[in-house]
């Protein structure tokens, strides 16, 4: 995701944040999430699209805090978010070892259906226009075009 900086600087955002979040609890993400949701609604995004962005950000941030940084208070989650009236972009990077998103089991496989975990990335891919991971697998880039 080396092109990430260009993706964020090239746009004229109505709202932009570049923040570091603590990792000791997923509650650390609430303030940023509320700001994002309020901004999307302020610039006119429809409720259905706001729901999808909310869900995708929730999944990505929980993955970063829980699975990436493993609630380690010494580690940070680095988040960049840009919002305009027709585009949402976010990059969420943790300080963990990363994972291979291509090796996740298919949660819709009948044999997997009653397994409790592994659906977050699938939901992100469905609700976002684009979801990409860096080669290490510890940073995700997401985009939603309105």
């Amino acid at each position: 995701m080396s092109e990430g900086a260009d993706l964020f600087s090239a746009e004229q955002w109505a709202w932009y944040r570049d923040v570091e979040l603590n990792s000791d609890s997923t509650d650390c993400t609430r303030g940023l999430l509320d700001e994002i949701l309020n901004t999307l609604m302020t610039v006119g995004w429809e409720n259905k699209l706001v729901f999808g962005v909310h869900l995708s950000m929730e999944e990505a941030l929980v993955n970063a805090v829980k699975h990436g940084n493993k609630y380690n208070p010494a580690k940070k989650v680095h988040v960049r978010v840009g919002i305009s009236s027709n585009l949402f972009r976010a990059e969420i990077a943790d300080e963990g070892d990363g994972f291979d998103p291509n090796k996740l089991p298919d949660p819709t496989d009948p044999d997997y259906l009653d397994k409790p975990n592994g659906r977050g990335v699938m939901l992100m891919r469905n609700f976002m226009s684009k979801v990409e991971y860096n080669p290490k697998g510890n940073a995700v880039f997401m985009e939603k075009v309105r």
Binding site: E58, D114, G120
Partner: peptide, 16 residues
């Protein structure tokens, strides 16, 4: 009005 995959995990375990 909102739930994430964490809620799905609880529901699947409850169902079991």
């Amino acid at each position: 009005n909102f739930m994430s995959s964490s809620a799905l995990s609880k529901l699947i375990n409850l169902h079991k």
